[in-house]
Amino acid sequence: MYPRLLQAGEQGLVIEFGDAIDPALNQRVVELAASLSNEKLGGILEIVPTYRSLMVYFDPLVAPRDKLGASILQRLSKGASTEPPNAPAMIVEIPVCYGGDFGPDLDYVATRAGLTIDKVVALHCSRPYRIYMLGFMPGFPYLGGLPKEIATPRLDSPRTKVPAGSVGIAGDQTGFYPVESPGGWRIIGRTPLALGAEDFLQAPLYAPGDHIRFTSIDRAEYERLAKARL
């Protein structure tokens, strides 16, 4: 059944590898995206990798859907044997100042989990998280693999304004807001590395398939890093 081709308008072709949040599935998406970026097929306008599928925007007057779909499937069957398996993952460190006015929901997360605040922070920093995709806003990473102990449902009513750099939890996902936005995630800290849309897009710090590891910093270090960015 998989991979299967889906239609998203006359200019959208979706290659779907499965129906789950799974590192191996996501890796296939990332590899196909890399393959199509490195060695282009005619008519493709843009590609968007997501958790378990790849969106290909194309011009059907240049490349008919059936032909393009067949070329991509052919690329997949060829690529499977030649790609080096398990290329080492890039890990990007994101420093976070946890709690206080930077993390208004940290107490709630700790209380709900029956853990100390220090333990919540230690768990949040305990492992690298795979970036499954970027979406929602420029540079917003959807990260998987949050320790179950600190998984926390979203706010019942989203905040109208979440400051740039805010690090949050939503269910078993974690991530951070690169630009100020409304949002319903539980905010536990803030990173001084909030780039803003334009800076991020011009020099992305990370891409789908990379990993992010959070490290805990104090307020003085936060201020120092925030200033160093100016």
Binding site: A8, G9, Q11, G12, V14, E16, D19, A20, I21, V48, T50, Y51, R52, S53, M55, Y57, M133, G135, Y142
Partner: peptide, 11 residues
């Protein structure tokens, strides 16, 4: 709800 994927113009 689905596992999030891309949103095309006109979705």
């Amino acid at each position: 709800d689905i596992v999030s994927d891309a949103i095309a113009p006109g979705s």
